[in-house]
Computed example of a mutant assay.
Amino acid sequence: MKALIVCICILSFYILGCNSNHPEHDISGVYVNKSQSEYSIAFDTLIISKKAATNYEVERKTGFQKIRNGSTMSKEFQSEKWPAQFDQEKMLLSETELGRQISVEQDGKSINLKRTSYSKIK
């Protein structure tokens, strides 16, 4: 009887030890933001791809239209890529060269770059 209780205790501790307090988040995906002011309209897309355990690549694609004297100009595009490291505990994706940081919301459906919020679409 004692052996059975000891086995159950050992098994319970083993199962509890295998569970992580920090569930692994997959932040890969496509995130979008649209913003508008009296001077421009911008469509921003962040594509986050996992390369290794904590290594990611972020591709930012921006399309924007300037507004001059009430007229909307033709669309212009910019694109850039950068590597980033993900900190699981802080829920932060960091790029070191320019110091960009992307915070990940707990729901995993939105992220923030500076003060701009992006929603996950894919």
Results as ranks from 00 to 15, higher is better:
76 E>R: 11
92 L>A: 14
16 L>V: 08
27 I>K: 08
122 K>S: 07
16 L>E: 10
99 G>E: 12
87 D>L: 07
113 L>Y: 15
120 K>M: 05
46 L>N: 02
19 N>S: 09
46 L>Y: 08
52 A>P: 02
3 A>L: 10
66 K>A: 12
36 Q>R: 09
1 M>I: 02
99 G>P: 05
44 D>V: 00
67 I>C: 03
21 N>I: 13
52 A>M: 08
45 T>E: 02
35 S>F: 01
36 Q>P: 04
95 E>S: 09
28 S>I: 05
19 N>T: 10
85 Q>M: 04
87 D>E: 07
29 G>W: 05
8 I>E: 02
46 L>Q: 06
79 S>H: 00
19 N>M: 11
56 Y>D: 07
9 C>F: 15
30 V>A: 02
41 I>A: 07
99 G>M: 11
111 I>S: 06
17 G>H: 13
50 K>Q: 14
58 V>E: 04
96 T>Q: 12
84 A>V: 09
116 T>R: 11
99 G>T: 10
90 K>I: 03
51 K>M: 12
104 V>M: 10
105 E>S: 15
21 N>Q: 10
23 P>N: 02
60 R>V: 02
53 A>D: 14
24 E>F: 10
12 S>C: 12
56 Y>R: 06
25 H>V: 14
101 Q>T: 13
47 I>D: 00
20 S>A: 11
78 Q>F: 01
98 L>G: 06
79 S>A: 03
60 R>W: 04
19 N>W: 08
28 S>P: 03
51 K>N: 11
117 S>C: 11
10 I>A: 12
34 K>Y: 06
52 A>D: 14
50 K>M: 07
52 A>K: 12
110 S>Q: 15
80 E>W: 05
111 I>P: 01
26 D>P: 12
31 Y>V: 04
65 Q>E: 06
114 K>S: 14
57 E>F: 13
44 D>N: 03
21 N>P: 03
87 D>V: 05
49 S>K: 06
57 E>W: 12
59 E>N: 07
93 L>M: 09
97 E>R: 14
45 T>L: 02
71 S>G: 00
107 D>V: 01
68 R>S: 11
